[in-house]
């Protein structure tokens, strides 16, 4: 039994190696890391620039945040971008000019902010109650997202491509008469994908969070990544056994990538309040992943219980489908 399992493991490893799955994972790792380090970390939005046209020097205590322009045309050109605020101080009473942003409250704030820069600055600074700075938050956030996407979509696809290859080669038919347990057939694949996913998780976290921060979150992240990896691999296995060819499967994959993961990102990333998202199983998996990156305690034992149940259920389903498929193949 044990020897049989080892040889299946070896065969699966060789198959994965030949399907260039690792190459794809490495490519994704490089692509994601480059994007995070060179682009995402630097994303920010600055406060509205304020420009003043003040030929008579009416305002003497203007904040250093305000830029002086020399002509009224210059001022007009500056505020026409729809983001900046212009102050026209050429007449007796200064006039604040803005191009509307389409939101009344934002317009009000822009005007009030520009006006406040004309009087002496206050020394008030906002109190910070969190531990992350902007960069670290960005890193944690985007890393958890990429990891979720990679584990949810790519693992699913990779396992399926493996199964289709085996179907084509007739491996499933051969397995029907081999004295090897069907569970071994499933578990060997799960083990390999779990292992490769965990290595991926480890590399992605350490490269993008830094060694110490990455190392600190890894134990918790590993649990979430493991759960997600096993669930997605089992789902991929089930779909691949049931669906007749790879083309139809890739359709399923597209639906998964777009209609299942996109709402999850939208709900978790922005402040949109959707009540129905609580019924979306992937949402909880994603939040588990994200919270583990932010080291915020979130889920109770019921979450793990449901995950364990889902894994057992999926395993039984795959086992049944495989038995059925082998019987069909003769």
């Amino acid at each position: 039994m044990w020897r049989g399992f080892i040889s299946i493991l070896k065969k699966d490893f060789k198959l994965i190696l030949s399907s260039k799955f690792f190459l794809l994972a490495l490519g994704s790792l490089i692509l994601y890391s480059c994007y995070i380090n060179f682009v995402y970390v630097k994303l920010d939005q600055d406060i509205y620039p304020v420009y003043i046209y003040d030929p008579m020097n009416t305002h003497t205590r203007v904040s250093s945040e305000v830029t002086q322009v020399d002509t009224i045309e210059d001022l007009k050109e500056k505020y026409s971008d729809g983001y900046s605020v212009g102050i026209d101080a050429s007449s007796i009473e200064s006039e604040i000019v803005i191009v509307t942003s389409g939101i009344t409250s934002t317009d009000n704030f822009r005007a009030a902010y520009a006006l406040s820069l004309l009087s002496p600055e206050s020394s008030y600074t906002v109190e910070n109650i969190g531990q992350n700075d902007k960069e670290m938050k960005n890193r944690r956030e985007i890393t958890s997202e990429f990891l979720f996407f990679e584990l949810a979509a790519v693992g699913f696809l990779g396992l399926a491509s493996l199964i289709f290859k085996e179907k084509q080669m007739g491996v499933i038919r051969v397995h029907g008469i081999l004295p090897v347990n069907k569970s071994a057939f499933i578990i060997s694949k799960l083990c390999l994908f779990l292992l490769s996913d965990l290595v991926f998780t480890c590399l992605l976290s350490i490269i993008n969070l830094g060694l110490s921060a990455g190392w600190n979150v890894l134990p918790v992240v590993f649990i979430q990544a493991g759960i997600l990896s096993i669930i997605m691999a089992l789902a991929g296995l089930y779909c691949a056994i049931r669906v007749p060819d790879f083309k139809q499967f890739s359709l399923l994959y597209l639906v998964l990538a777009i209609f299942i993961t996109t709402p999850v990102f939208l709900a978790a990333q922005t402040n949109i309040n959707w009540n129905w998202i609580n019924y979306h199983p992937m949402y909880h998996l994603f939040m588990g992943m994200k919270n583990s990156y932010f080291s915020t305690p979130s889920v109770g034992s019921s979450y793990y219980l449901v995950c364990a149940l889902a894994i057992v259920l999926l395993f039984l389903l795959v086992h049944r489908a495989l038995t059925h498929e082998m019987a069909k193949e003769g």
Binding site: Y113, S122, Y124, V126, N128, I129, G130, N132, K134
Partner: peptide
Amino acid sequence: TFLSGDELQINRIIGNT
């Protein structure tokens, strides 16, 4: 006002002012 400290620059300035 208070913030968590990981907000965009614009919101930090809004918090300050």
